[in-house]
């Protein structure tokens, strides 16, 4: 069985008036099928409001399906008794780091997760140190998280989940507030967890460049999965992506524009190196 399996997953946000009558229904997930193998790195793209965060919240059971099924780590998310297991196996980094800061000192904040799942104290501090180092925040260990800049908070939130060493990490736009260097550091840290420790990664992002290193990409549109495949297969469909309000990496777009203008570079170029090589062959 896959690590994550969703079948016809539906989520409706239902609003009721004072008398409990349904006022409005918003279908945020509309029959989503998702398969993620253990150790895979999967990216999820989609326009604002397409249902990405709603889907992410299902993966660690912060939300419950209106219909359809979802298994995580072999457990049906409908089964109340698996809740603890699932939350322990799927760690989550939220879109806004303010929502997940708990303690008043950075290192205690990072220690909170592992403490909560019963990691022995001596081990906790090793993990805290390791994860703060890997996000470049070790020098802030004694600071108050509320007094950090936006990007610094985000890094602390990521360290907190890393310290729990879950089998799977779901990251909801983790780099939205980071500088280019920080973005690279966080993605490298995530990539390393994936490659070296086999941690399953689900990355939600609006930065097309970040998707290149994923094994597979899912594209959502209005609560439905409308495309999935390797980054190269997805990014060779420039027009389809644009119709879903998305884009391709800047280098891919440049290659596409050059082709349209008559420069015969191959399709599906993803990286700068590939484009340099392709152009050098033409000169």
């Amino acid at each position: 069985m896959n690590f994550i399996e969703a079948r016809k997953l539906v989520h409706e946000y239902i609003r009721r008036d004072e008398d409990d009558n349904v006022e409005s229904i918003l279908t945020a997930l509309d029959g989503v099928d998702l398969d993620v193998k253990e150790g895979e790195f999967v990216a999820i793209l989609g326009h604002n409001g397409s249902g990405k965060s709603t889907l992410a919240k299902h993966l660690n059971v912060l939300l419950k399906a209106s219909s359809g099924t979802l298994w995580v780590n072999g457990k049906d998310t409908k089964d109340e008794s698996s809740l603890w297991d699932i939350r322990q196996s799927a760690g989550m980094v939220f879109q806004n780091p303010d929502n997940q800061i708990i303690a008043s000192v950075v290192e205690e904040d990072v220690a909170f997760g592992p403490e909560n799942i019963g990691v022995p104290t001596s081990e906790i501090w090793k993990r805290v140190e390791r994860s703060l180092k890997s996000v470049g925040m070790i020098q802030y260990r004694e600071h108050s998280p509320n007094r950090l800049s936006g990007g610094q908070k985000q890094r602390v939130a990521i360290a907190g989940v890393m310290a729990m060493e879950p089998k799977c990490i779901v990251l909801d736009e983790p780099t939205a507030m980071l500088d280019p260097n920080g973005r690279r550091e966080v993605l490298d840290a995530v990539g390393q967890l994936n490659k070296e420790k086999g941690v399953t990664i689900i990355l939600i992002t609006h930065y097309m460049e970040e998707v290149i290193r994923a094994d597979r990409v899912y594209v959502m549109d209005n609560g439905k999965v409308v495309m999935h495949g390797t980054p190269r297969a997805i990014f060779s469909q420039v027009d389809a992506l644009k119709s879903y309000r998305l884009d391709v990496p800047q280098i891919t777009l440049l290659a596409y524009e050059l082709r349209k203008a008559g420069v015969p570079v191959p399709e599906g170029i993803l990286t700068r190196q590939e484009l340099v090589e392709a152009l050098c062959r033409l000169f």
């Binding site: 326009h47 736009e173 939205a176 609006h206 309000r245 998305l246």
Partner: peptide, 8 residues
């Protein structure tokens, strides 16, 4: 930050 590419 957080806008889809078209929205950006």
């Amino acid at each position: 930050a957080g806008l889809d590419p078209k929205g950006r």
